[in-house]
């Protein structure tokens, strides 16, 4: 864990942590690390252990599904200020999609095993984090459903 000081500031400025108790944020920061991904490289792949989640500081990451013999299908792209990955919260803790950097991307990763341990010890920290993840999950689910309905065309034409 390098640059802990810098990471605390990064977390403090990120919308996900807005209004969070300093003590809790410090606990999370204790599990955080900076990571850099070059264009085309994978942050994680479908089926990988979900041992981290990420805050995107800069860049763009695609969530993809690998299709044999074809280009992968991109189902969502995430950009700076977005949060990426919630499989770490849900057993069996495996990534559901590939995450691939579309350009040079700087991410903060948060170690799930470290955080899950702290959440188990302090259930109010666990509640705090679940409260912050649930709206993101709900918004992504709503968005995903909207992507299904041909929002820009006229269905059944």
């Amino acid at each position: 864990m390098v640059h802990i000081e810098g990471l605390e500031r990064v977390l403090q400025e990120h919308a996900f942590f807005a209004g969070m108790d300093d003590g809790y944020r410090d606990l999370v920061a204790g599990c955080a690390a900076n990571e850099v991904f070059h264009a085309g490289t994978y942050v994680y792949r479908e089926g990988d252990p979900a041992d981290k989640f990420y805050l995107i500081r800069h860049g763009q990451v695609a969530l993809e599904v690998y299709v044999p013999g074809k280009s992968p299908i991109i189902v969502e792209t995430l950009k700076s200020d977005d949060l990426m990955g919630w499989s770490w919260l849900v057993p069996p803790f495996r990534a559901s999609f590939d995450a691939r950097a579309l350009e040079l991307s700087r991410l903060v990763s948060i170690d799930a095993a470290c955080l899950r341990g702290k959440m188990d010890q302090d259930s109010s920290l666990g509640y705090e984090l679940h409260k912050r993840f649930a709206p993101i999950v709900a918004a992504r689910l709503a968005a995903a459903r909207r992507q299904l309905i041909d929002l820009y065309g006229h269905p059944e034409e």
Partner: peptide
């Protein structure tokens, strides 16, 4: 610009247009 789905050749956004509004 965003699209509902794309394959690897697309380097733009994938997601609903409402996601762009915050940016």
């Amino acid at each position: 610009v965003t699209v509902d789905r794309a394959s690897g050749g697309w380097h733009g956004n994938v997601g609903v247009v409402t996601k762009l509004i915050g940016r």
